[in-house]
Design a binder for these strands. Structure first.
Lengths: 235, 235
DNA sequence: GACACGCATGTAGCATGCTACATATTCACC
DNA sequence: GGTGAATATGTAGCATGCTACATGCGTGTC
């Protein structure tokens, strides 16, 4: 069985994990040559992956000089979750109005995986379930570009290193925020779905900001979500 | 010395224009090698540009077979403007609450460029002014990722070919939609700014959909904006 | 000691060589 | 003629050469 996944994708994933795990220190400078040697591949797939990561803002390419790791700052978390709020909250409401039974069934199945992951403290499975649930809701909104954007935004923050602290407590808390969302979708209650999704994302964002702040010594923005989100009602 | 532009960026732009102008027919299959020869560059920058265009959904890469042009369908316009509505309307409201005098001055200057472009029927300048105005409003929202997303969304629809029909009428109409937005921002009236931005984007989207539909023989979705947008109030 | 300048070093960007593979075509066989 | 396997063709993906350039360091000058 030939590996269906391209080398570029593999390197892309590996680089992201290396950055977010702190293996590649924030602010450090590297070269395509070094990274290619590190992963035992040629420079081409590394270059492709680096370009993609630079698009999402995780790396910064300095021409003829190297690639600098941007790490994950508190402000990055703010930006990512502001965007996710603007996109995912309406999507959740839409899903609640247009949900068919198949979607609800799939969502409920996902919740079971969730619970299992929490019970066994399996963080990788937890991440997968979380992503799957959000992805299904986004898919229901029927806008592939918005879905892709949210996926890309998730990529920036999804990391083992960031989540590990205080696992058992926060994982369970996050899980418990998902259940009422699915209930609201099942009940075809868009307002509730939107409100619950909003609360869930805000909760997650604040949690992440605090953890990132702890490791980077930054301050968490005091009034968050800020005005950009509050004003989102104006659409 | 002019700011250095990479070959990749140049090809990226050229390919996008070629696709949107119809020079590369929708659905047609090409190869990196052919395209490289066409632009008199090597395959590498073409490949980079193609990968980026594939990310935005304008091209589809078929492994070991070629790249297929996806063209611009009515549904693409719907998706792009749904996303822009979700992002730009809150941003406009935010800009209205947080605008400083410098921003207002810059916006007013932009309106003058706009009027000049319309007066001389200079579509290139029109596009630049339009983008500049929207970009300034987005920048005021203080979220670089959202700004980048909107830029990318604009890229998909910005094309000479699509706009050319009925120029003198539509250009002036679009220009006149921008003035009240700037006025609302200057008056620090976020609700008005949001409403006006929404109307402007919807108007533009419908216009684009009709033009795309005319050339592709598709039907324009009847009730637009649809439920995803209507539900956006729930944030 | 401060500073300007040239050179060595290392890099990204671009060009090109090479390979596995997806598709189209031919052709043998029934 | 219909069908399926062998072959031919062309491609993306990956590896590797090559070049202009950004940066840092040493050297010369005052």
């Amino acid at each position: 069985m030939a590996p269906r996944v391209s080398t570029t994708d593999r390197i892309h994933l590996a680089l992201r994990e290396a950055i977010l795990s702190g293996e590649l220190a924030s602010g450090s400078l590297h070269s395509i040559y070094q990274l290619a040697e590190r992963f035992n591949v040629s420079r081409t797939p590394v270059r492709d992956a680096v370009l993609r990561l630079a698009d999402t803002g995780m790396l910064e390419i300095e021409r003829n000089h190297g690639v600098r790791v941007r790490g994950l700052k508190v402000d990055d978390v703010r930006e990512v979750f502001e965007a996710r709020l603007l996109l995912e909250v309406p999507a959740a409401a839409f899903a609640a109005t247009h949900a068919d039974d198949a979607l609800v069934t799939a969502l409920r199945a996902c919740l079971l995986d969730f619970a299992a992951a929490v019970a066994t403290n399996d963080e990788a499975q937890f991440q997968r379930s979380d992503r799957q649930l959000h992805t299904m809701l986004m898919a229901a909104a029927g806008n592939t570009r918005i879905s892709a954007m949210v996926e890309s935004l998730r990529d920036v923050t999804q990391a083992h290193g960031v989540w590990t602290a205080d696992q058992s407590r926060t994982l369970r808390a996050i899980q418990h925020e998902h259940e009422p969302i699915v209930d609201a979708v099942a009940a075809r209650n868009p307002d509730a779905a939107a409100r619950l999704m909003r609360d869930h994302l805000v909760e997650t964002a604040v949690l992440l900001m605090q953890q990132v702040a702890k490791t980077s010594g930054e301050a968490v923005p005091d009034p968050w979500p800020g005005a950009l989100i509050s004003r989102a009602r104006g659409v």
